[in-house]
Computed example of a mutant assay.
Amino acid sequence: MGHWLQRNIVEPGKLPLLLALASFVLTFLAPRTVTRLIRAGKGPFGNVETGGLHIHHVVPGVILTVVGGFGAVAGGLHGFGPALGAVVFGVGAGLVLDEFALILHLDDVYWTEAGRQSVEVVVLTAALVGLVLAGFSPFGVDDLSEDELQNRAGVALNVTGNFLFSLVALSKGKARIAVFGVIVPVVAVIGALRLARPGSPWSRRFYRRRPRARAKAVLRAYRHDLRWSAPRRAVQDWIGGKPDPDPPRPPERG
């Protein structure tokens, strides 16, 4: 284990990234656990308030992210500066992204259906950093030979092509595939070749006069969501807690 860590993490200079990822994941889990206990009325925990103002943990998260980011940059390439800065940055990022939905909606939606977006962003971020840590480089150009490294035109073409595939996947309403496709090229190609999701820019532009393609896209999206929405929600509930049910809507007056 020590030899593997030295060869694959320390020597390539990935130790700060590993520390940032570990502190990011652990920090996300810590406030989620505490807030779930507060929600259930268990433990000695409570909301942080001052002068009647509820201080969300995104506030110290922003401060730690700024301090850790600048600290890592100012620490140079040697010593404990980059490692310490990476840990502080990971802690801050975990606190911030745990309340990503609150920032997006500018409202306390932590335990609502919209709050699931925080869990999605955290999982996506951790997965992408994990891929980079595992050895993948953006655009899939990390395994080039010496001759390929000298062929800058080929590298640029590879990068540009994969970026375009990711853009096509994004325009087809496949945001997750587009993001992962930046790191894993085959994912971008698959996302670019498959049918667009209904309502996506690609669908509105190219399926407008193709009713068969539009109907096929709607049917495929329905089947995909029917198959994967329940497992995805179950995983999100297990990681971040189940949202509160929506309040009943008042009856409409005739």
Rank of each mutant, 00 (worst) to 15 (best):
V218L: 09
R214F: 14
L170E: 05
R214L: 13
V179P: 00
P198C: 10
K216S: 15
N151C: 00
V186Q: 15
A215T: 15
V187T: 05
S229I: 13
I177L: 12
L170M: 08
A169P: 02
L195I: 08
A213H: 13
L167S: 06
V155E: 00
V189Q: 11
R227L: 15
L195D: 08
L226C: 12
V189S: 07
A192N: 04
A213K: 13
H224T: 15
P211M: 07
V189W: 01
S229C: 10
D225E: 12
L226I: 12
T160M: 10
R232I: 11
S166E: 04
G181M: 04
K174A: 08
V235I: 13
S166L: 01
N162C: 08
L219I: 10
Y207Q: 14
A192F: 04
L167R: 03
G173Y: 03
V235A: 12
L193I: 10
S203C: 12
R209W: 10
R232C: 15
A169S: 06
R152T: 12
G173K: 02
R227E: 09
P185T: 09
I177N: 03
A221M: 14
V159E: 02
V189K: 02
R209A: 13
L193Y: 04
H224P: 11
F163C: 01
V182E: 06
R214T: 12
R176E: 12
L157C: 04
A196H: 04
R152I: 07
P201A: 07
V168Q: 03
R220A: 14
P201C: 08
V218Y: 08
A215C: 14
S200L: 14
R227M: 09
S229W: 14
A156Y: 00
I190H: 05
R152E: 09
L167C: 11
S171Y: 09
F206Y: 13
W228G: 11
A221T: 11
A234Y: 10
I183M: 04
G161L: 06
Y207I: 14
R232E: 12
